[in-house]
Write a protein that binds this DNA or RNA. Structure first.
Lengths: 172, 172
DNA sequence: TTCATATATCTTGACGTCGAGATAAATGGA
DNA sequence: TCCATTTATCTCGACGTCAAGATATATGAA
């Protein structure tokens, strides 16, 4: 199904357009343009997240555990950060972080060491197995990310990145 | 902190740029441009989702329960759909849908009716209270969506919507 | 009519997340 | 030094999600 848009070109109607059409019929006074934008953003992110989780699962990792290991890895040797450091970039609560570390410790990919500089805290360190695991997972993850963006023209990718950067800046 | 980009203009370095810089140092062979785009997308969506959930919570709803009520509402009177119909737009599994309906039924916003056309199935119907609740919640939700997109210039919003539409089309 | 297959929905158990609050150590002013 | 406050981390209970499989009804070919 196609429809002629206000600016004159023809585009396929997608699942979000169908939802907007329903709202225009039922609640015509609502301004649903923002809903379209946000709806596409949410649906797209859901698809992308699933693709990425599929790749990580082949390496025995969830998106959550990957986040921790990757943060430790990119911090550089000796691959040790406090839970508070990990919290600073992870967008989760402290309770969630504790749980994530617990799960990784349970399968031997990280270990908790006493923090010599702060008796209240600990350091989370990559184990040898954890390092090996994250090296392979990151390589595969980046390949997946390249695949997921590959069909988009270079100019579109740059434009999209710039727009997202600007919007994100209003929140961070 | 700012840095000069390859194309010559100066932009603020954001949290995603900081992550990419770490990867360039640790694993310089990786192509991290897609990671930047996907990272901004994920972080932005997380912020937006939280703002939206905050609004819905003031109406006693989660994003999940809102989805069901909104789908019923925009389907038009008599506001009845089967769980299968709800599944078709919701991007969740059938077990999740059963749970969502259970929760809404428990607080009296929907009810399950036998499906006269299919003895295996049921119809999920908005109750009077459910209709009242979703009418108010949708109004507030749209206001939040307008606020979240308001600071973006109109041309940017249209460009972003078009880019997202194109990318999403590869998945649906 | 009969039965194999398909379909609609629900059940179960494991996990990840959050919010609120608990615990323990660090910090800094009196 | 002492103690109030702050900070770092963890605990707990509730909830949403998924994957796999169970149950019950519908469908269609023989």
């Amino acid at each position: 199904m196609t429809f002629r848009r206000a600016c004159g070109h023809v585009a396929d109607m997608d699942s979000v357009d169908a939802i907007l059409a329903q709202w225009r019929r039922e609640r015509p006074e609502l301004d649903v343009a923002p809903m379209g934008l946000l709806g596409r953003l949410v649906r797209l992110t859901t698809h992308l997240r699933r693709e990425i989780e599929h790749t990580l699962a082949r390496h025995g990792l969830t998106a959550s555990s990957f986040d921790i290991l990757a943060t430790l890895r990119r911090s550089g040797a000796p691959y040790r950060l406090s839970p508070g450091d990990l919290l600073a970039t992870a967008m989760v609560t402290s309770g969630t972080m504790t749980n994530r570390i617990d799960q990784l410790e349970k399968i031997g990919l990280v270990e908790r060491l006493p923090n010599p500089e702060d008796g209240r805290g600990v350091l989370v360190a990559l184990t040898a197995i954890g390092l090996e695991r994250i090296e392979a997972a990151v390589t595969a993850h980046v390949e997946t990310q390249i695949r997921l963006t590959a069909e988009m023209p270079e100019t579109d990718r740059e434009a999209l990145d710039a727009l997202l950067r600007g919007w994100l800046a209003r929140f961070e």
